[in-house]
Write a protein that binds this DNA or RNA. Structure first.
Length: 571
DNA sequence: GCCGTTTTCGGCCCGACTGTTTTCAGTCG
């Protein structure tokens, strides 16, 4: 059985190999586009009868896909692999080194980083047409840190840098307005770099200040409209592009550099159909240049509603009804939070106060269970004692429904941390894995299945266990977990912590299609983490979730009815 | 590689920056 993801990876691999061969960029793009089409397709790749019926996939790609479907590989890729050394592919990551130049380097015997270093040193590269002294110096420097710096940084890391830079820019002289664009504005899980759009009528003044920023490790470019630097913060190297534009072009430029690339392509096609042309400076029309004051104006010109940044993937945002999507206003509760009883920093009372201040109508206290000794997990006895405090908080906040909950560990042997006899005393039970991440998929799935099949378990929290940029998570088969959740009436979590962000948007969409209910939770341990709810909602929107899909947009009564259906075995 | 009645060939989204050139190719977003 081959999955859609396998097919997508296969096509992407072909396009990378073609790139390193220095092939026609449009041919390279055709495979990449086909991969995107498969990803956005309604049907599973194994169920598609005729690939050529999909717009953007022609005879060539269809043949590759057919062959891949039956054999698990394709002649096209095998031939490329024969032709192009594997080690060459990684060199694409070096800035200033693209397919054309790599193909030339391959001709003189470069096959990987080591042979590249040799040819740089012995003068071969510098003597080649199109290469020069400066280029060689740049490559030598890049090779020093080659594959030692992570290519993308987690959103949570970028967030700190962004707010620092925003403060700095606010104090700058000569800036009219500024905003961050790029993958950060689209709230992607990870970002390769940061894009700031600055409007100014004193570009030279602003440029001068930018080049004086603290902790610049490297200046990549310093042109009239673009200043590009690498900043060093702690142990991280962050590439930041600053675009300097006239204020009249601000909205267009912001839209352009918010992307995604595929979104922009679609927008430009729309423009082209009307004989217009969109650039970062505005729209070239029959009556001259139209410069929208806001992004709304730009979208409105093509009869589109404002498309929020997090949806600009270039895949579904032009067809879907965006007005029905979940928003932060729909959220009525946070139902995965820790207090000082285990490893949180807020007391029960403080946490309830904070949730009330956010306007929630219900919530759940869910400290760790007894297995988690190192975070002071709660024994049965302590959970019962905690209820006294929760009871006091209920008196203080009569309008707030507070569920006595627990985040219960699924133990390495697959059993649960408490017996059912005790669990039935709890209002609400989360199950999650915090141990033995190195188990096989079979073992992990057995643990998750046991949890799903327990009538008192209402939610599986952070279902993949990943910490973005630090660890992969355990060997979960998400498709199977979604099946189990659907079958047992168990909800799955969208963990709003930017270090976790699981499930991914793609998995959330699958869960929705399978009828699985989602809970968006902050997993709060410190007060500021309550704010992450908005990030969780943005990710849910990427999967086009609506309030009906998300339990914590419901009332407490509706949610309890959902939990009870599983507890009482009612269908 | 994909597409299409103004097309089966010649486009394919657009523009800036750098370095190597001597008017432009390659890379990048």
């Amino acid at each position: 059985m081959r999955t859609t993801q396998d097919a997508i990876r296969h096509l992407e691999r072909i396009s990378v190999y073609l790139e390193v061969k220095g092939e026609n960029p449009f041919k390279i793009n055709a495979f990449r586009k086909a991969a995107n089409i498969l990803e956005a397709a309604e049907h599973d790749f194994m169920d598609i009868e005729d690939f050529t019926e999909m717009k953007g996939i022609g005879k060539g790609t269809a043949a590759v896909l057919e062959e891949f479907r039956t054999t698990g590989t394709s002649t096209a890729l095998s031939e490329l692999e024969q032709e192009v050394p594997e080690g060459l592919i990684a060199l694409l990551k070096i800035p200033g080194l693209g397919g054309k130049k790599l193909a030339k380097l391959h001709d003189v015997g470069v096959i990987d980083a080591d042979s590249f270093a040799e040819k740089l040193e012995d003068g071969t590269v510098e003597a080649m047409p199109g290469f020069g002294k400066k280029t060689v110096e740049k490559y030598v420097k890049a090779l020093e840190t080659f594959e030692t710096r992570p290519e993308r940084l987690p959103y949570g890391v970028m967030r700190k840098i962004v707010s620092e830079l925003e403060q700095t820019l606010t104090a700058f002289e000569g800036i009219i307005r500024f905003a961050v664009g790029g993958s950060f504005r689209r709230s992607e899980e990870t970002c390769k770099d940061l894009d700031f759009i600055l409007s100014t009528d004193q570009a030279e003044v602003v440029k001068g200040q930018l080049l004086e920023l603290e902790q610049i490790d490297e200046i990549i470019a310093a042109g009239e409209t673009k200043v590009s630097v690498v900043l060093k913060r702690d142990t991280n190297y962050i590439a930041v592009d600053f675009r300097l534009v006239d204020d009249a072009a601000f909205a267009s430029t912001l839209h352009h550099f918010t992307g995604s690339k595929d979104h922009n392509v679609r927008m430009r096609q729309l423009a082209k159909e009307r004989g217009e042309s969109i650039s970062e400076y505005g729209v070239e029309t029959k009556d001259g240049l139209f410069q929208p004051q806001t992004e709304d104006e730009l979208f409105a010109r093509y009869d589109l509603p404002f498309i929020p940044p997090e949806l600009r993937s270039g895949r579904h945002e032009f067809e879907q009804d965006l007005s029905r999507l979940i928003t932060e206003k729909n959220i009525q509760a946070d139902v995965h939070m820790h207090t000082t009883w285990s490893d949180g920093t807020l007391s029960v009372e403080e946490l309830v106060d904070a949730c009330a201040a956010r306007g929630y109508s219900w919530m759940a206290i869910t400290d760790h269970s007894q297995y988690m000794k190192f975070v002071n997990g709660l024994t049965i006895d302590r959970l019962r004692k905690q209820r006294v405090e929760i009871e006091a908080a209920r008196k203080k906040h009569p309008d707030m429904t507070i569920l006595c909950g627990v985040e219960m560990d699924i133990l390495p042997d697959g059993s649960l941390d408490y017996e059912d006899e005790f669990l039935q005393e709890m209002d609400y039970v989360i199950a999650s894995i915090h141990s033995k991440f190195d188990q096989t998929e079979t073992e992990i799935m057995q643990r998750l299945e046991n949890a799903c099949r327990n009538p008192y378990v209402s939610l599986i929290a952070h279902p993949t266990g990943r910490i973005i940029g630090r660890r992969e998570g355990y060997a979960v088969n998400v498709d199977r977990l979604i099946e189990l959740a659907a079958e047992t009436g168990t909800a799955l979590e969208m963990n709003a912590n930017p270090a976790r962000f699981d499930l991914t948007a793609a998995s959330l969409a699958k869960a929705k299609a399978a009828g699985v209910k989602i809970m968006i939770n902050t997993d709060t341990h410190r007060p500021e983490m309550l704010e992450d709810m908005k990030l969780g909602v943005l990710h849910a929107r990427k999967a086009y979730l609506e309030p009906t899909d998300v339990i914590n947009t419901w009332t407490a009564q509706e949610a309890r009815a959902f939990f009870d259906r599983k507890r009482l075995g009612v269908d």
